[in-house]
């Protein structure tokens, strides 16, 4: 599995004190630059998989592999390399930013804590670059999160995730908390992820693992999709194929349940 950037290899997980596993034999692998959607409803185990892929907990069985080697939570130097390569964006742009830190400070935080950059001028330059990449004005750096709308805060969170020039971003419901009219803007931003960023070479787009309950957002952003039900991946494949010709009844249920607008020409 060495060709994969990040992979869950037959991973099971049981929370301490629970009688049953939360995840059962999950195999999910991401190549560099690949965009994969993980779809499921509440309680399916989406957040638990993310937690394991982020190295915040260890699987009960199986392994999470980063560039082919099992992720070792005790190897601090190795984890630093992992953290600069794999970043995350959360659902709630209000809770994700420290209200007492300026936007510039929040965005440069991964660079400082991972020891990538310490020079003040270089940090400022990188912050300006990142703000440009997420379409925010340069003077945003000196302001505080409360001055920004939900959509703008999510841009800030994305800029912070992009700061160390990651190869993969794990995004947990990144647009669910946003109003419809800003949702598409953030989706467009995620579509071009890393492309407008000078630190990322053009031919190396940043990969994405998008966790969502919303199939249309996954369809908009991901090449591949895995459908999660009760801690098991019930279907996995190219997004276009899975949506057009779902094999598992649960995938069909999810698709059929999406409320649609009446068609314009009717």
């Amino acid at each position: 599995m060495s060709e994969y950037l990040l992979a869950a290899d037959d991973v099971s997980f049981r929370y301490p004190g629970r009688g049953a596993d939360t995840l059962h034999g999950i195999t999910l692998a991401l190549r560099r630059g690949e965009r994969v959607g993980l779809v499921g409803e509440s309680g399916a185990g989406k957040s638990t998989i993310l937690k394991l892929l982020l190295g915040l907990d260890s699987p009960t069985a199986g392994a999470v592999r980063f560039r082919g080697a099992p992720l070792n939570l005790r190897d601090r130097a190795g984890l630093r390399g992992f953290r600069s390569a794999v970043q995350n964006v959360f659902q709630d742009p209000y809770g994700a930013l420290d209200p007492r830190a300026s936007v510039g400070r929040s965005i440069s935080e991964p660079l400082r804590s991972l020891g990538i950059e310490r020079d003040r001028a270089a940090l400022d330059a990188r912050v300006s670059e990142l703000l440009r990449a997420v379409d925010l004005p340069a003077d945003a750096a000196d302001r505080y999160p409360h001055a920004f709308s939900g959509g703008q805060r999510q841009r800030i969170a994305i800029a912070r995730a992009l700061a160390p020039g990651p190869q993969l971003i794990l995004a947990d419901e990144p647009v669910s908390a946003l109003d419809m009219s800003v949702r598409t803007q953030i989706i467009e931003l995620l579509r071009g992820l890393g492309r407008a960023d000078a630190a990322v070479p053009d031919d190396n787009q940043t990969g994405l693992l998008l966790v969502s309950h919303d199939l249309s957002i996954v369809a908009a952003l991901c090449d591949r999709v895995a459908v999660l039900q009760d801690g098991r991946i019930v279907e996995q494949g190219p997004t276009a194929r899975v949506l057009a010709d779902p094999q598992h009844p649960y995938t069909r249920t999810l698709l059929a349940a999406i409320p649609r607008l009446p068609r314009a020409e009717e």
Partner: peptide
Amino acid sequence: LVDTARSLEAYLPEVTAP
């Protein structure tokens, strides 16, 4: 609002909407 909703829906396979 309508265009946004439709643009997201456009990513999904067509169904016969009620």
